[in-house]
């Protein structure tokens, strides 16, 4: 605003000001209309989808809100859920990691507290909090993916934390890469696209969907494969072999030595 307008406020100036206020008002009104028309569904309270309404009830009933906030906005104790997408909800609740039992270095896998239908409803509600996030993946046909290629990809991308056959491994300060023994194909895929806990996200440009399916096929087939050499000892490498070597091997040999060495 220039000093001349301030110095000489006339009738024309007042009218101009009123007109600009009206324009601003009209523009705001238009924006509001545009927003309500273009915005992806409003708050859950205004949604008519029964899944979303049930999901919101679950969100409160299972105390998700106590850490993630009434609107999933997150807080000091928990991250925001705005834009995380259904895959993250399905993974966290489907593996029993959420709802959290207590705060520790990492949420352990446990028996899920919600049914699949409830998880679906909760995911529908969380999706209304904000757009984005990967959907629950479809893994049908993963058995047809190239298992050997999947193995090579697994050793390159996954084994450094999850061990060579997905038996799990230790990370820093009490965190860990869990065993993949109980993980379902869908959950493995979800973990790759959502990166739960300390896991990095393996987006479709890092690992294509086909490569992800190959990894899943490798994990599932190697987990279900029999051990041709006998008892597998947890497939964690030489530590359990050492225990068996000392207890069984040396133990039996020393027992034999006691027997042979004493009867003259």
């Amino acid at each position: 605003m220039t000093s001349s307008t301030l110095a000489a406020p006339g009738a024309g100036g007042r009218r101009r000001r009123l007109a600009s206020a009206a324009i601003v008002l009209v523009a705001l009104g238009l924006l509001t209309l545009l927003y309500s028309a273009l915005a992806p569904r409003g708050s859950a309270a205004s949604s008519s989808d029964p899944d979303v309404i049930a999901g919101r009830d679950l969100f409160v009933k299972f105390s998700c809100a106590s850490c993630h906030g009434m609107n999933g906005e997150g807080g000091q104790r928990a991250p925001s859920l705005i834009g995380v997408g259904p895959a993250a909800v399905d993974f966290q609740v489907g593996t029993g990691r959420m709802p959290l039992q207590h705060h520790s270095a990492q949420a352990p896998r446990k028996r899920p507290v919600m049914t699949e239908a409830q998880i679906h409803q909760l995911a529908a509600y969380v999706a209304t909090l904000g757009p984005g996030g990967p959907p629950v993946p479809d893994v049908t046909g993963y058995q047809n993916a190239d298992v050997a290629f999947g193995g090579a990809l697994f050793r390159t991308n996954c084994a450094q934390c999850h061990n060579f056959v997905g038996a799990g491994g230790e990370l820093t300060y009490g965190k860990y890469a869990p065993s993949l023994a109980e993980a379902t194909p869908t959950q493995i895929y979800e973990a790759m696209v959502t990166g739960p806990e300390n896991m990095p996200v393996f987006g479709d440009k890092t690992l294509t969907p086909d490569q992800k399916l190959a990894i899943i096929n490798y994990v599932k087939s190697v987990r279900s494969q029999a051990d041709p050499g006998g008892e597998g000892l947890g497939r964690i490498g030489p530590v359990s072999e050492t225990l068996a070597g000392i207890l069984v091997g040396l133990g039996l040999c020393v027992g034999a030595a006691l027997w042979v060495g004493s009867r003259a």
């Binding site: 193995g151 090579a152 050793r155 390159t156 084994a159 450094q160 934390c161 999850h162 061990n163 060579f164 056959v165 038996a167 799990g168 491994g169 230790e170 890469a177 190697v222 497939r235 964690i236 490498g237 030489p238 530590v239 072999e241 050492t242 070597g245 000392i246």
Partner: peptide, 18 residues
């Protein structure tokens, strides 16, 4: 189960023999 050696790869819990 370990797979062939590749310098770009390593497994969690890599231990030698006792």
């Amino acid at each position: 189960l370990y797979g062939p050696y590749n310098p770009s790869q390593v497994s969690a819990g890599s231990q030698p023999d006792f």
